[in-house]
C-alpha cells in the first residue's frame, strides 16, 4: 500500500515510529497484537482438544456470515460472530466426538462456502469486500474496529482465565473430568464459543482461508518446544506476535499483502522448529549408535 513512499532504514525503532505516524498502521499493529494474544491462547486449546479442523471449518462458516452481513449492509464482523457462534454451538452440542467428524464438518463447510459465494454474487460490485474476508485486510481496520477487537478479546481472555484449569482437565482427560463432576457439555460449549469469537476477530487480520496460520500454527510450534501448558501458551502468543509484527513490518516496505507475510513467517517458524527437532533426534540416534559401536573398555 505504502511501499516505496517511505524508505527503509536499518534503525528499526525509527522505522516503527515512521510507520506509526500512519493511523492505519497504528490500528493494524494494535489490532494485530490483541488478536495474536487471543489466537495464541485459544490455539493452544485447539491443539490440546484436537479441534484444528473444526477451527478451519468455523472460518468458512464465518465467511458466509460475513458475506450475508455485507449483503444486508451491516458490519461483516457481526455476521461472522453470528454464524461462527451458531456453528460452534452446533458442534459443541453434538458432542466432542462429533466435533472431530471430518466428513460431516467438511460437508457443512463446503455448503457454507457455497452460500457465501451466493451472497457475494447477489451483492453487486463487492469483490474487494469478499477478498478481504477471505484473506484478511489488516490495513483496513478502523479505530472503532480496534476498540471492538479489544472489547471482544477482553471477554475471551477473562473467560479463558476463569475456566483455564477446568478446560485443560476436560480436554486432557475427559472421562476423569466427567467423573469428577465437571460440566463437560458446558465446558465444551464455552470453548467453542470462545473459539468462534477469536476466529471472528482474527479474520480481520488473516482472513477465513488463512485462519490456521494464527489459530493453529503458533500453538503447534509451542507444544513442540515446551510440555508445560502455561509456557506453551506463552510461546504460542510469542510466535503469533512475531508473525504478525514482522509481517506488518515487512509489508510496509514490500508491496505484497500482509497476510502473505504473516502466514509465511508462521510457516517458516514451524518448519524451522520441526527441522531443528528432527536434526537433534538424528544426532541423539547417531551418538547412541557410536556408543554401541565402540568396543567395551572393561
Amino acid at each position: 500500500m505504502t511501499g516505496g513512499v517511505v524508505p527503509f532504514s536499518w534503525n528499526l525503532i525509527t522505522d516503527l515510529r515512521t510507520m506509526w505516524e500512519f493511523g492505519f498502521m497504528r490500528n493494524a499493529f494494535e489490532a494485530g497484537t490483541i488478536i495474536s494474544i487471543v489466537a495464541g491462547i485459544i490455539g493452544y486449546f485447539v491443539i490440546v482438544r484436537r479441534s484444528a479442523f473444526a477451527t478451519h471449518a468455523l472460518g468458512h462458516v464465518g465467511f458466509s456470515g460475513a458475506a450475508a452481513a455485507v449483503l444486508v449492509g451491516v458490519n461483516p464482523v457481526y455476521g461472522l460472530l453470528l454464524f461462527t457462534s451458531s456453528g460452534a454451538a452446533g458442534m459443541a452440542l453434538l458432542g466432542r466426538r462429533a466435533a472431530n467428524r471430518d466428513i460431516e464438518i467438511g460437508t457443512v463447510l463446503a455448503f457454507m462456502l457455497g452460500l457465501g459465494l451466493l451472497f457475494i454474487s447477489l451483492y453487486k460490485g463487492f469483490a474487494t469486500e469478499a477478498y478481504s474476508i477471505l484473506f484478511g485486510e489488516i490495513l483496513g481496520i478502523s479505530d472503532s474496529g480496534v476498540i471492538f477487537t479489544l472489547e471482544a478479546s477482553a471477554v475471551v481472555l477473562v473467560v479463558i482465565g476463569l475456566v483455564y484449569r477446568r478446560l485443560l482437565f476436560a480436554s486432557l482427560d475427559e472421562d476423569v473430568a466427567e467423573a469428577k463432576g465437571m460440566p463437560m457439555l458446558a465446558l465444551g460449549l464455552t470453548f467453542m464459543l470462545l473459539l468462534a469469537v477469536a476466529i471472528s476477530i482474527a479474520v480481520q487480520v488473516i482472513g477465513v482461508l488463512l485462519i490456521f496460520a494464527l489459530m493453529v500454527t503458533p500453538a503447534a510450534v509451542a507444544v513442540r518446544l515446551t510440555k508445560r501448558p502455561l509456557y506453551a501458551v506463552l510461546v504460542s502468543i510469542l510466535v503469533a506476535l512475531v508473525a504478525t509484527w514482522v509481517g506488518l513490518f515487512v509489508q510496509f516496505y514490500a508491496q505484497y499483502p500482509a497476510s502473505f507475510f504473516i502466514v509465511s513467517i508462521a510457516f517458516a517458524i514451524y518448519v524451522a522448529v520441526r527441522a531443528g527437532q528432527s536434526l537433534s533426534a538424528l544426532r541423539v540416534r547417531r551418538a547412541a549408535q557410536a556408543m554401541r559401536n565402540q568396543p567395551a573398555v572393561d
Binding site: 483455564y164 482427560d173 510440555k227 501448558p229 502455561l230
Partner: peptide
Amino acid sequence: PQRHTIDNETHVAAETLVRLGVSGTKWGPG
C-alpha cells in the same frame, strides 16, 4: 478410566496431568 484422550501426539508433561487431578476442577488460571 479405561479410555483416555491421551496418545503419542500429546505433548504435555505427565506432572501437569497429575496436578490436574487435584486442581482440574478449580476456577481461575492457578
